[in-house]
Design a protein around this nucleic acid. Sequence first.
DNA 1: CGAATACTAAAGTGTATGCTTAAGTATTCG
DNA 2: CGAATACTTAAGCATACACTTTAGTATTCG
Lengths: 120, 120
Amino acid sequence: MLKYSVIDETLKALAEPTRRAIVERLSKGPASVSDVAAPFDMSLAAVVQHLQVLEESGLIKTEKIGRVRTCSIEPKGWGTLADWIADRRTVMERKFDRLGEILAEDDTPTNKRKRKGKQK
Amino acid sequence: MLKYSVIDETLKALAEPTRRAIVERLSKGPASVSDVAAPFDMSLAAVVQHLQVLEESGLIKTEKIGRVRTCSIEPKGWGTLADWIADRRTVMERKFDRLGEILAEDDTPTNKRKRKGKQK
DNA sequence: CGAATACTAAAGTGTATGCTTAAGTATTCG
DNA sequence: CGAATACTTAAGCATACACTTTAGTATTCG
């Protein structure tokens, strides 16, 4: 319930099997809403809702021409996601370099005594 | 719902601001449950629940010694996540090569798609 | 020992999310 | 034109999720 961010919407969008399946379909090429929906055992309206979440997150984009809406991957959204993960891994690996195998065995006592009683 | 998978739990775990903040804290080094919880304006029990989700997803690991549970990053979980994203991007980029700049630029309102490839 | 510490476990609550169905709006085709 | 197509919108519902509070269990310290 903290603040919103791009990475938040991106990860929320992908944290759903149906939406990941949609994304995997689109990563092979653009498709209409109906085409995207076809393989799924759910209503077209439900798939449309998933597509909206994906579009708002910036992972895909859509464009309506005539009565057909064509959906495709939006590379930019994937960049920010990959960057965030890469950042985390960089910090971790720097830590590994610095501390050797401490994380691997991690019995080091981080006994920072907190004497503040503030628990909430 | 479809079937569960490792990547599903991983992404669900990270699709939450508090859990990402925890992960960012731990990526700088191991910490006790209390230490992890300290910066957050919520009960310790709530933070423990987040830690459980993160541990079940394989992104962190914990070990209890005495009365202190120490939490740390589990690099393996991050590998599977990064791999999944890398896979998606690989497929996309192969597609971009094939379709040229169609996916990259079509923000322009004048979208005359030249159909120089099979669409489906 | 008994009190403080550091979690742990369980039950409950409000809201968000993933669906459904039904009805409506454009657009294309014969 | 009128019917078929391709969504679109809205409302409702059941479950999942992020918390809360309360109470309990180990472990350490004076």
